[in-house]
């Protein structure tokens, strides 16, 4: 992976980033989009490097599989510095996350992710079956170039390091104010729902959640933890949130089935499903995947190489 990875320009940028800190990295990324010449040259090079072979799968995607790490009633985005203030969360990826976690903590953290370069933290309300916690046995975080027009996909920017994104509505009072999606793995005949579904024996309850993919280009977080990000409008990023980044799709498969009455989330009914993401991907690894997988619309594996 080392040899094949980032182009030398990226390495220089990484050194620069390390020297000047995460904010400069973020704004360096922003700077690229404002220096059109450099941007074009970069894009051209990467296209040549990653010219899709005849067998390339034309889906803009790279994944991280991050198994369950730990549970805590903490939330470093919503309740920073306040351990115990939250409902129970199940954490994936970085193994150190607690109420006090900041970007440097994640960068130095061990991780449950494949690829191991992903030291990001992902968390969701814990699922309980008859009041016993159940954790997903498959937890995949897909980074996708979809939901926007192809010309927007082609100019997707890397997710800046330190960006925090929340998706879903922990306070939903019913299915109408929820974007949760529950379904059954290997039982497509069961219609998906915003609340728990009754999965046939031998299948698994699964949750899909899509994160907003349009960034305001400025803030790594916002006071309400939402307004620095937006969902696309008419297949494009709105003027208020002009920077398209890969769409994070969280897919969790729980080893449970049957009567939905036995299930609850720490946050309430199934429609309160939500996800939190604290990005700590190394800048160069994220940039390479955006260049090689998302922009040219190529399906990549965990190593960020075309499948």
């Amino acid at each position: 992976m080392d040899r094949a990875s980032p182009r030398s320009g990226i390495r220089r940028r990484l050194r620069l980033a390390t020297a000047l800190g995460a904010l400069l990295v973020l704004l360096g990324t922003y700077g690229i989009s404002t220096t059109a010449q450099a941007d074009t040259a970069q894009a051209d090079t990467s296209r040549a490097d990653a010219a899709p072979g005849v067998n390339a799968i034309r889906v803009a995607e790279f994944p991280a599989d991050c198994s369950y790490s730990h549970r805590l009633p903490d939330d470093p985005i919503i309740f920073p510095g306040l351990p115990g203030a939250s409902h129970m969360h199940s954490f994936f990826g970085a193994t150190v996350t607690d109420a006090f976690t900041t970007l440097p903590d994640l960068i130095n953290s061990p991780t449950t992710c494949n690829p191991q370069v992903d030291v990001s933290s992902y968390w969701v309300p814990t699922l309980y079956r008859n009041n016993v916690a159940v954790e997903p046995i498959i937890s995949t975080f897909y980074y996708l170039g979809e939901g926007v027009r192809s010309d927007v996909v082609a100019r997707t920017e890397p997710i800046p390091q330190g960006l925090r994104i929340v998706a879903g509505n922990a306070r939903a009072t019913g299915p109408n104010d929820s974007i949760a999606r529950w379904s059954c793995l290997h039982a497509g005949q069961v219609p998906p729902s915003k609340d728990f579904v009754n999965c046939p024996a031998g299948t698994m309850l699964e949750s899909y959640l899509d994160f907003p993919q349009c960034w305001n280009g400025r803030d790594l977080d916002s006071p309400d933890h939402k307004s620095h990000m937006a969902y696309p409008v008419n297949q494009a990023c709105p003027a208020t949130h002009p920077v398209p980044v890969p769409k994070l799709r969280q897919v969790l498969r729980y080893p449970v089935s049957g009567d939905p009455a036995q299930f609850r989330l720490a946050s309430g009914p199934g429609y309160t499903m939500h996800g939190d993401f604290f990005n700590a991907w190394p800048v160069a690894e994220m940039a390479r995947r955006v260049n090689d997988c998302i922009r040219p619309v190529i399906k990549c594996g965990h190593d960020g190489r075309p499948l």
């Binding site: 020297a19 000047l20 800190g21 995460a22 904010l23 400069l24 973020l26 704004l27 360096g28 922003y30 700077g31 404002t34 220096t35 470093p76 985005i77 920073p80 900041t102 970007l103 440097p104 330190g162 925090r164 400025r218 803030d219 790594l220 977080d221 916002s222 006071p223 933890h225």
Partner: peptide, 29 residues
Amino acid sequence: PSVLLCLALLGAGCAAAGPPPPTRPDLAG
């Protein structure tokens, strides 16, 4: 350009190196 942009956008906040400084005083987290 990154540094210039940084200074133009944020003023003194950019001078801090090391841990990521907030881009706004009320920036959560």
